[in-house]
Design a protein around this nucleic acid. Sequence first.
DNA 1: TTGATTGAAAGTGTCGACAGTTTTATCCGT
DNA 2: ACGGATAAAACTGTCGACACTTTCAATCAA
Lengths: 253, 253
Amino acid sequence: MTKNRSEPRRNLAHDIASQMRRDIISGALKPGEALAEPALAERFGVSRAPVREAMIELERGGLVQFETTGRTRVRTLEEKDVVEIVEARIALESMGARLAAVRWTDEDTRWIERSITAQEKAAAGVKFSALDIAMHEYIMKCGGNERLVMLWQCVRWQFEMALTHIHSLQQNMAPDLRRFSVTGHRKVLQTLADRQPEMAAKVMAQHIKDSIEWYAPQASGAMPTAASRARNGRPGKTGGHAMPVNVFKAFSK
Amino acid sequence: MTKNRSEPRRNLAHDIASQMRRDIISGALKPGEALAEPALAERFGVSRAPVREAMIELERGGLVQFETTGRTRVRTLEEKDVVEIVEARIALESMGARLAAVRWTDEDTRWIERSITAQEKAAAGVKFSALDIAMHEYIMKCGGNERLVMLWQCVRWQFEMALTHIHSLQQNMAPDLRRFSVTGHRKVLQTLADRQPEMAAKVMAQHIKDSIEWYAPQASGAMPTAASRARNGRPGKTGGHAMPVNVFKAFSK
DNA sequence: TTGATTGAAAGTGTCGACAGTTTTATCCGT
DNA sequence: ACGGATAAAACTGTCGACACTTTCAATCAA
């Protein structure tokens, strides 16, 4: 694991961005909600300048979006967005796993094993998701490609945000998700410990794709490897889905 | 091809960022060069505020980097960086090709064919590289995943910047690169036209990996699929390379 | 009541300014 | 001549202000 290279320049903007990121991911700030700079400036007791920079940082992470008028809103999430996020995760993390497999150490194996142990003890829900994501982050960093990690961070926050809202809609998390997910993690660990880059990439991709089917089954219809089934779909039309219900409709404006 | 969703809010910052991006990619601004906000503000005839935002936009694209003191410099390029950039390209573009294969149309085929024709006529060098990148961009956009395209843009500028400096060091571009590259493009097009997602992903990855060996042979030693050969390499040590010469030494500070 | 109009309120884009800090240049002792 | 202390210059982070634009709400006509 390499230490983060780019210590972000410590300033108010960064602190504000962190706080707002928490609020958006936690759902305290709702998708579509307007974010006015003067109001935020007052809330944080600063001027508009740092707030403005924080907005740019959040936009980079995909948590807010700028309108053509300049106004800023918490980004909305539709089903299409979740598909995009997961596809991006698969792209980045399968490469991350491939690279991690090359430089994998026994210490890394022990770290993952401890994480899996904690995952088994954690209650299903937000707590488990946090451990889950932390493990994926660890593997990404093991890959040693700082740019890849940085790109991944952009998707990570969006994924966490989506998770929150999925959880809030599916009152009861699929009870078997945790067990299922842990099984996937064990498979991934195996390929990493065996230092098999190509297998690691493939297993990681499959694991992520499988996971999202538990979280949001209806989003899996447009997933990459299922893509060959939904042929000739044109942009805009996401194609038929396995399940009719669309939980993400709740987020769209 | 879907139209770009996020019309960037048109403001001075965006214009300045575009101009500076050109200057950095073209090499007019050299790697490691300091970028002071007051000087840039005067050059563009604006205040520091838009310049500051432009800097953030450039940092997002990896063309400049902030020091802990807050100072901004044109990002330096070492061999390690080129490897990272190419690895990221492979991750994003293989997924992009996979997605593009699903929604590929005959019109897309014609577009690519026209591009390839132009590539064959273009003189090897910067002109060819521009056509090359434009084609890759087209395929990425065909994938329909806007987030993936956005992540790709971050790497694209860095890649173009690297290309410029590689060209300036290798006075004569490998004469066969163009022919070789066009052959790769034809293979990619074939998988897309046949709508074979997995093949498209694989062929695209191979094509990018092959290309970089022409541009910077010594960087290929640490490439993903060659990874299984360079086992147990620890961070910091990039492992043995096929060629001893390191053109990127020239960029490191 | 409904719908268009108009004026007020709020928000964004940009600017100039200032304090604190880093960098650079000068000066002094050796 | 050289290295370190010191002063000057330059730069960043942040602030408050202003013009222009968008949004909202009250008003008025139909």
